[in-house]
Amino acid sequence: MSDSNTTDFTNPSTFILLGIPGLERAHVWISIPFCTMYTIAILGNFTILFTVKTDLSLHGPMYYFLCMLAITDLVVSTSILPKMLAIYWFNSREIDFSACLTQMYFIHCFSVMESGIFVAMALDRYVAICDPLRHSTILTNSVVAKIGLAVMLRSSLLALPFPFLASQWPYCRTNIIPQQYCIHMAMVKLACTDTRASSYYGLFVVFCVIGLDVFFIAVSYTQILRAIFSLSTKDARLKTFGTCSSHLCAILAFYIPCLFSALTHRFGHNVPLHFHVLIANVYLLMPPMLNPIIYGVRTKQIRDRLLRLFTHKGT
């Protein structure tokens, strides 16, 4: 039989992103909330960066980590939203193989980086509450910079195997990705070779890296809560706990969709595909939108600075 009608995807030059399979007719309507989320994420995170930069009283460890978080959220959302909107609005579904690998790297790298930043912020809260007199001497600017560098190097190195392994696989089945962007598990399902090593490594990143981060955060907050409950008055306990509330809300907004998305991808075989895709979108887009809102509303210093900024502009 002639092979002229078969296509060789061993070295595909492009992949086809389907968007949300089964909901193609609703793409334009679905784009509205996602575009709104992206707009809020861009405006909110740039506002956080501008506020911290222009107010010298906010030049401290907590706000430096918050700026790192804002930059991470901007990169994550920008790495996926423009292509998603191109699919929704212009049916532009093709993506170059190299661009697909690059997008995969950025998504996984900065997702791991965000988790590391939450650990750093938990450390800051632990020192500020459990050893407040030494906070300024322990978390100096150089130490904060070293922590940020360590978080960046860890995420960069951990995410590197994903595109490297994917670039080595033969793709002899199809080059169609039933997603809106390139992620590791979507590429694994297209490869026609043994991908167990890559799948095991993906599980290692999810359970060991994210799991260890959650463990360290839990240990920090166990000590923080012990210190809070040892305070003499209820007002003091509530005021101290209030300094942690924004961090706790941001943690929940990140880790709950993250773990749910990872588990449904690997074990939710009976879950509809469009539900997988929508959950993945929530996991990647919700935190960048919510984080600046949470910190803007719950952090008194940022809230006061923003109020002064808008008041001066209005007068």
Rank of each mutant, 00 (worst) to 15 (best):
D124W: 12
A150K: 05
V143K: 04
F110W: 08
L149R: 09
M121A: 09
L123M: 07
C130T: 07
A145F: 15
A145W: 15
L149Y: 11
V127H: 00
I138N: 03
I147T: 11
M121V: 04
D124M: 06
G148W: 11
N141C: 14
G116W: 13
L139R: 04
G148I: 11
A122C: 06
S115I: 09
I117E: 05
H135R: 03
A128Y: 01
I117A: 08
S115E: 10
Y126Q: 00
V144E: 01
R125W: 06
L139I: 03
L139A: 05
H135K: 01
T137F: 13
V119Y: 06
D124N: 15
R134K: 11
T137V: 10
D124G: 08
A128P: 02
M113Y: 15
G116T: 09
R134M: 13
D124C: 12
L149G: 09
V112Y: 13
K146A: 14
A120D: 06
A145L: 12
N141H: 11
D124T: 11
H135I: 02
M121K: 05
S111N: 10
P132M: 04
V127N: 00
V144G: 05
I129W: 00
S142T: 13
D131L: 03
C130Q: 07
E114S: 14
I129M: 01
A122D: 02
M121N: 03
V143A: 08
M113D: 06
T137C: 14
H135E: 01
S115Q: 07
G116C: 14
A145S: 04
V144A: 00
I117F: 15
A122L: 03
A150V: 12
F118N: 02
S142I: 09
S115G: 15
T140Q: 10
I117N: 06
F110V: 01
Y126I: 00
C130G: 07
A128M: 05
S142W: 15
T140E: 12
A120Y: 09
T140Y: 12
A150Q: 10
V112G: 08
L133H: 15
N141V: 09
D131W: 08
Y126K: 00
S142L: 13
D131G: 03
E114D: 12
E114H: 15
P132R: 08
S111F: 13
F118D: 01
M113I: 14
L123R: 02
L133F: 15
V119S: 02
A150N: 06
F118P: 00
V127A: 00
G116D: 10
T140W: 14
M113L: 15
S111Q: 11
G116I: 09
V144R: 01
T137M: 14
R134G: 07
F110D: 00
M121W: 12
A128Q: 03
N141K: 10
T140P: 05
C130M: 02
I129S: 00
I117R: 07
S136N: 12
V127S: 01
R125L: 04
